[in-house]
Every structure is written in structure tokens, then in C-alpha cells.
Simulated assay, not measured.
Amino acid sequence: MKDSRVSRAVGVCKKIVASFSYSWKKKRDLAEAQKQLNLPEHSLKTECPTRWGSRQAMIERILEQQKAIAQVLSMDKKLRHLIPTWQDIDVLEAVNKALGPLVEFTDALSGETYISVSFVKPTLHLLNHSILAPQEDDLELCKSIKSKILEYLNEKYSHPKVQELLDIASALDPRFKLKYNALETIATAATSTEDAPPQKKRKGLSSFFKSSTSTTGGEAIQQDQVVGAELQTYLQMETLDAEEDPLQWWKDFKKHYPRLSNLARKYLCIPATSSSSERVLSTSGNIVTCLRSSLNPDHVNRLVFLAKNL
């Protein structure tokens, strides 16, 4: 989102952080001001382009230490102009209010244990209807930022194929099932009306279990009945707690749902974000350094595997 007010306020924050980062005297004065004003003795944070949520963390810390920062900068004529104005503070508060709730979701979706693509649909639903929904006390800038974020996220996942994947993954997750409007993907589309031309049926969850080989009519009907009964039994079971591991649940109930468990293994192995692959790249960078640039690729693979799994 390009906004001159946001660009100016964020620029001021960066200059403030830089002025304190490169001066031990400023750090000392800030610590003394924090004690006098009974503020938390926290250091200022800087924005890092490659670190998610770093801008919001920087803004939040500036707002927390606003009085202490103003007290220290007011004693320096050369840096007095860096004291945020009330307009800057209003902008920073609006940005922090809009971005703050996203930090927890970003951290949650970046997990590697029981976080998969099945979490995307519930998260989008919660962001659209609760977290990023406009509030009465929101400033216009805050509403605009929330709107832009939702517009970007909804467009990102708007492709029909992506929606189908998210619906099926969410339905196969015992923590959610049909809670987030996945019913349309699981059930086949309704038959066409007399006035409308025939429409192509949407791919249903049960269609994944059908054998690719030709079967007799009786075998096909029997197979559909078995799949339908298995699916119906699964949907009638109680949902799993949100903190539980769905993969472990499917491992425990594999013998009860042999067909669904195979499909769950296919979809729930997809990570919600690219964080896991980025962590692997970071681990590789720590292993293959300038002093170890001649490592055999096979050795690198083994060392990365050991580093990530021990």
C-alpha cells in the first residue's frame, strides 16, 4: 500500500532507531528516561525486509517508548526534528492496529508440526469476518489498510483450483471439516433446472476415490455406497481440538477410514506457507560457509537433514 503519510511516519521511525543504534550515549539516556517514566526497559527494534512482521514490531516499540524517545531527542538540537508529530503518531497507531493482529497468524501459519494448507481457509474466514473487519473506532487510514490487506489475500486465493484445494484440505482436517463452507466442494453440484442449460458438475470429494479402471455398473454403485458411508461417518464424528495434530489423528483412525486417510495424506502434507523451505535454505547457508565451500553436495544434504531432524 502506497501512502505518503505511512511512508513519512515509517521513515521517521527508521531514523529514530538508527540514531539510537549508533550512539551508546543515546542508549544510556533512553534507559534513564525509561526508569524516570516507569516504562519497560526495552531496546528499539529495526525493520528487516526479510523478516515478517518486523515493521509492525518496530512501530509498536516506538509507540511504547514514545515519551522516553521524545525526552531524549528534545535534549539534542540536531535530532530534535526526529520527534514524531501527533500526525505521525496517529498514522503509526493506525498501522499498528491494522497489522498487529496479523503477527500472531503469521507465526501460527509458519509452524511445521501440525500446520498445513488446511489452516488457510479457516484463517481467511477469520480475517474477513473478525480480525480485519472494520470497527467503529477505526480511523479511515486503518480501515483502508485492512481493506487493502483483505483485497490482496482474497485475490491471492481466488482461483477456482486453489479454492477447491483449500476446501478439500479443510474438509479432510478433523479440526475443521465442514465448518468453513467446504460443503460445496465435497458434495456434487445440484442438477440443472429445466430453464437453464446443463452445467458441469463440480468435482466432489468422493470422486477422488473412484477407480480409474473400468468397472461394472454394480461395482460402481457399491463403491459409491462404501465411499459415501465412510465420508458420512467421518463427518459425524466430533471435531478435533485446534491444538491437536491432525496427522496423528489420521494415523490412529486409518483403519476406520482407509480411503479418506489416503486422501488426507495427499493434501495435509502441503505446508501453509513457504517458511519451512526458507528455514532449510537458512540452515544450508549456515552449513556451507566461506570456509566450507568445497563440501560435497551429498554431504551438504545429509548435514542439512541432520540439522533439521536432530
Rank of each mutant, 00 (worst) to 15 (best):
S284I: 15
L268N: 05
W249L: 10
A264M: 07
I287N: 09
Y257G: 08
K254I: 00
Y267P: 02
H256C: 13
P258A: 06
R279V: 05
N286P: 00
L260S: 03
W250R: 04
N286H: 04
V280P: 08
S274V: 12
S284P: 07
L263I: 07
W250S: 03
I270E: 01
A264G: 11
Q248L: 11
H256N: 15
I287Q: 09
L263Y: 05
L291K: 12
S293E: 14
W249N: 09
P258Q: 06
T289E: 01
F253Y: 14
Q248A: 13
L291C: 07
W250K: 05
S275G: 00
Q248V: 11
S282Q: 10
T289Q: 02
R292Y: 10
R292L: 10
S261A: 12
L281E: 13
P271S: 02
L268G: 03
I287S: 10
R292E: 12
S261C: 09
F253E: 12
I270R: 00
W249G: 06
R259D: 10
Y257N: 11
L247E: 05
K266E: 14
K251L: 08
S274Y: 11
T289G: 06
L247D: 05
R292W: 09
T289F: 00
T273L: 03
S277T: 13
C290T: 09
R265D: 12
I270V: 09
Y257L: 15
A264C: 08
R265Y: 06
S294K: 15
R279N: 09
S274M: 12
S276G: 03
K266T: 14
V280H: 10
L263R: 04
W250L: 06
T273Y: 01
L281I: 14
L281K: 14
S294N: 15
T273N: 04
L260G: 01
H256S: 15
S293T: 14
W250T: 02
L268F: 04
S261V: 05
A264E: 06
S293L: 13
L260M: 06
R265A: 11
H256D: 15
T273A: 04
S275M: 02
Y257I: 13
W249A: 07
H256T: 15
N286R: 01
I287F: 12
N286D: 00
N286A: 00
T273G: 04
F253H: 15
R265H: 09
Y257D: 10
K266V: 13
S277R: 10
K255H: 13
V288L: 15
P271D: 02
S261N: 06
S276W: 00
F253M: 13
Q248R: 11
P258G: 05
R292D: 13
K266D: 14
S293W: 10
L260H: 04
T283P: 02
S275F: 00
D252S: 07
Y267I: 04
F253S: 12
A264Y: 07
S275N: 03
S275Q: 01
Y267S: 03
L281G: 11
T273V: 01
A264T: 06
V280S: 14
P271C: 01
S275V: 08
R259F: 09
C290H: 08
C290S: 11
T289N: 02
W249T: 09
L268C: 03
S275K: 00
